[in-house]
Design a protein around this nucleic acid. Structure first.
Lengths: 351, 351
DNA sequence: TTGAAAGCGCTAACAA
DNA sequence: TTGTTAGCGCTTTCAA
């Protein structure tokens, strides 16, 4: 690897001149020299040493994409297409802006902070943060942050609005819409399936409850299909969930992935969807689109969410103040075939 | 951010001592000093500046994970669960070994090389490389490389064995097994679906051809279901493929993702799987597992593939010579419900 | 057992 | 328009 110093020596110039040409500061350099240097750089295939540059400039051109892993949540976080499509959107945007993405997955905020300051990361995209996680990061990290799907505990010590940009959905309303839809189809025994009751899923849980309450349907804890992972595996969990579903006519699932997995477990035990059980998902990703029956679900665009987060971050890095600190993307219900209207006769009954 | 120099000043010691303690070279330092320094480091929450360290040590602790994007192949490469699960496996392994992952996606080998040397990446995992791509990287990059699913053109100029470790499957045999299975079920009009005929897919194509030939079934170019992307979208492509499928009794798809998408397009136009069309996939990922009907497919473990690649690389970085330069993972046919035995009567005919 | 100092490759303030 | 030089934070050789 040839260095600027060596180039300067070989051309009989100073490192400043070379550096200026490299950075296109041609106002400072005569046209002739510029040309000579430029040619030479090409010839020797000069590649800058980014560690040196970062050290000198006290920055890194790295965007840290941090996913907080939680217990019971993900084994391989990329299995959920919502996550992986989002990452795809982020990566593309970062790359196109000349930055680099460093992915970091951990369940330990302290460790995350250490990583971030070790690398002197220029900006942060945070995902899957709970409670005061995002605030803890904010307290220690003083460069631009964009969160995705983060609900901050406003009661937390010193929590303030506008500490970072957050991109999300009206999850409460989305879940309400989904549940409301089931109710309108005549369902009253409606479960809700999730692996947690925090953050996004808590908001969705609340929307679900609101819809029930509004229609005078009572809620009991038994309505909550709480998914557990056993030795990293979800299969056993879904078998239980499918059994439990026999007492319900519909289940609202907090993700498409889980909805499809539930349907699958149901089929395996002879519970037909939508004839015996109606299912609604959330996300509208490839799983929902390709499932049989097609999944009725709440649509959101994961790739766009990631892409938007990254592009807002890029703007902040370019010095622009974000227009808003709270972006709420649109959602909408997509009707497919996984919900049955309870009033309707079953195919079997029509025969 | 406190620096070693500042710490040294405050403690009235030299930077060497501090550095030695940080690196656990306690043989060089008295127990007492070690303890004092250690406590102080904790107190001030010292975090090393990795750019400086990398510059001084001429390394980076970064593993470059490079995906070559090709035209017509991926829009968002993470949409294919095979890819995203593999990345998940890689990431985990890298992280657990104290390295960092930098993902880089590009269709331009020169650009990739630039990136890699700019960051002074310590090791490389290459995916989706074609023809002499991997060799071109090898020529310019002289640190450990592990390839995944790479077929090197042995005729290429100067191509030699054992230039890097490659992890793959016997794709030819896998495709052969899949096709053979269809033939044994009585099929003779068997198509093959893919978006290319290079690398992995070419090997699979060959296996498919071998199985046909062995059974005296003629192949014509019309058997090749060549998937195209129109404006980044595959839907239109699959509509064509589904129409085309009417003239066949079975299709072997080069990925589960495509198999499921094909089934979906078929259902939409009243072509039933497996009654009207049998489908076999390749990968056995979540899509295949959750599809209806369950997909008969060639199993491989994407996460393990990634994880293995990373761990071999880690070993190489630790100075161990790899035991073999050509790892061929096992595959096996998983029977589910997407294939019909042609001799059997259709359900409709039994009535 | 500890310290001084050079050097990794680059940037940028300042001088010429 | 070009050059000199200090310095970014850390490692490491060599001397004390």
């Amino acid at each position: 690897m040839i260095t600027i110093k060596e180039i300067a020596e070989q051309l009989g110039m100073s490192t400043t001149t070379i550096s200026n040409v490299i950075h296109g500061k041609t106002g400072e350099v005569s046209g002739e020299t510029t040309e000579r240097v430029r040619k030479f750089l090409e010839e020797v295939e000069y590649v800058p040493n980014i560690s040196a540059r970062n050290l000198a400039q006290n920055r890194s051109k790295i965007i840290g994409v941090v996913l907080k892993a939680w217990e019971n949540k993900y084994d391989n976080i990329f299995q959920d297409p919502f996550v992986s499509e989002m990452i795809g959107g982020i990566e593309k945007q970062i790359r196109e802006n000349g930055y680099f993405m460093m992915l970091y997955i951990s369940d330990d905020i302290a460790e995350i902070l250490k990583h971030v300051s070790t690398w002197n990361v220029d900006g942060l995209i945070l995902f899957c943060m709970l409670d005061d996680d995002a605030l803890r990061v904010r307290r220690k990290y003083h460069k631009p942050i964009v969160c995705i799907d983060t609900y901050v505990d406003r009661d937390a010590d010193g929590a303030e609005e506008d500490e970072f940009v957050n991109i999300g959905l009206d999850d409460e309303q989305g879940a309400y819409d989904a549940t409301r839809y089931l109710i309108e189809k005549g369902h009253r025994k409606i479960g809700i399936l999730s692996d947690n009751q925090m953050g996004v899923d808590l908001a969705r849980f609340r929307g679900y409850r609101r819809a029930l309450k509004e229609s005078g349907i009572e809620y009991s804890d038994r309505n909550f299909f709480h998914l557990h992972r056993e030795e990293g595996d979800l299969r056993a969990g879904f078998e239980k969930m499918a059994e439990k579903a026999r007492k319900f006519t519909a289940v609202f699932c907090c993700s498409d992935l889980y909805a499809v997995m539930l349907m699958n477990a149901c089929f395996a035990r002879g519970i037909r969807v939508p004839e015996d059980l109606s299912v609604v998902g959330f996300d509208d990703n490839l799983f929902g689109k390709l499932s049989r029956p097609g999944l009725t679900t709440i649509h959101q665009n994961a790739e766009h969410k990631g892409s938007l987060a990254a592009s807002i971050l890029m703007n902040m890095l370019a010095g622009k103040e974000p227009e808003t600190h709270r972006v709420i993307l649109r959602h909408e219900l997509v009707e497919r075939e996984s919900v049955r209207a309870l009033g309707d006769l079953l195919p079997a009954e029509t025969r």
